[in-house]
Amino acid sequence: MKLLAATTLSALAAFTLAHAADIEGEWARGDGNAKVRIASCGSDICATNTWIKPGTPKEKTGDTLVMTIKPGTDGVYSGTAFDPQRDLTYKLTVTVNGDQMTTKGCIVAGLLCKGVGWTRID
């Protein structure tokens, strides 16, 4: 019985880690103006701009968004994101479905929200 419980817990932990890793990688924003690398950064997850289309205002390569998010069900992550360049904290929901990702950030108690589509790149 103890072996079964240990095996089940190990399998569950491996599934959780694999599920959580789905968000990590290189992503291109749907409007074609940015590419980011999403990776662990300490206990959080960071999205760092790796390329910005020339002439895109208020964004630059190297800008980082620090996300304190937890995986839920069906590829949905939720929590908060801090943008140090703008000194803003957002309520954040990220949905990953294979090579597609949608981010939705809200400020002002959830009254102002914006969603962005992303595609995984190799």
Results as ranks from 00 to 15, higher is better:
1 M>V: 13
2 K>N: 13
4 L>F: 13
5 A>M: 11
7 T>P: 00
9 L>K: 14
10 S>E: 06
11 A>N: 10
12 L>F: 12
13 A>K: 14
14 A>D: 02
15 F>M: 12
17 L>T: 11
19 H>F: 12
21 A>C: 08
22 D>L: 13
23 I>M: 12
24 E>A: 07
26 E>A: 08
27 W>E: 06
28 A>Y: 01
29 R>C: 09
32 G>I: 04
35 K>T: 03
39 A>T: 03
40 S>N: 13
40 S>H: 12
40 S>R: 15
41 C>G: 09
41 C>R: 10
43 S>C: 03
46 C>V: 01
47 A>T: 04
48 T>G: 01
49 N>S: 05
50 T>W: 00
51 W>E: 10
52 I>G: 03
54 P>A: 14
55 G>N: 14
57 P>T: 06
57 P>K: 12
57 P>H: 08
57 P>F: 04
59 E>M: 10
60 K>V: 02
60 K>F: 05
61 T>W: 00
61 T>S: 02
61 T>N: 09
62 G>W: 08
62 G>Y: 07
63 D>I: 03
63 D>H: 08
63 D>C: 00
64 T>L: 03
65 L>T: 02
68 T>Y: 09
68 T>A: 14
68 T>V: 06
69 I>M: 04
69 I>R: 07
69 I>D: 06
71 P>N: 09
72 G>I: 02
72 G>T: 06
75 G>A: 05
77 Y>S: 03
78 S>M: 11
79 G>F: 01
79 G>C: 07
79 G>H: 06
80 T>V: 10
83 D>L: 02
83 D>P: 05
84 P>L: 03
85 Q>K: 14
87 D>L: 09
89 T>N: 07
90 Y>C: 02
90 Y>F: 15
92 L>W: 02
93 T>D: 12
94 V>H: 04
94 V>C: 08
94 V>K: 01
95 T>Y: 01
97 N>Q: 15
98 G>D: 15
99 D>P: 05
99 D>W: 01
101 M>T: 09
101 M>W: 01
101 M>Q: 11
103 T>I: 05
104 K>V: 14
105 G>D: 06
106 C>M: 12
106 C>H: 09
107 I>T: 14
112 L>Q: 07
113 C>Q: 08
113 C>M: 05
114 K>E: 15
114 K>P: 00
115 G>D: 13
115 G>V: 05
116 V>E: 15
117 G>E: 15
119 T>R: 08
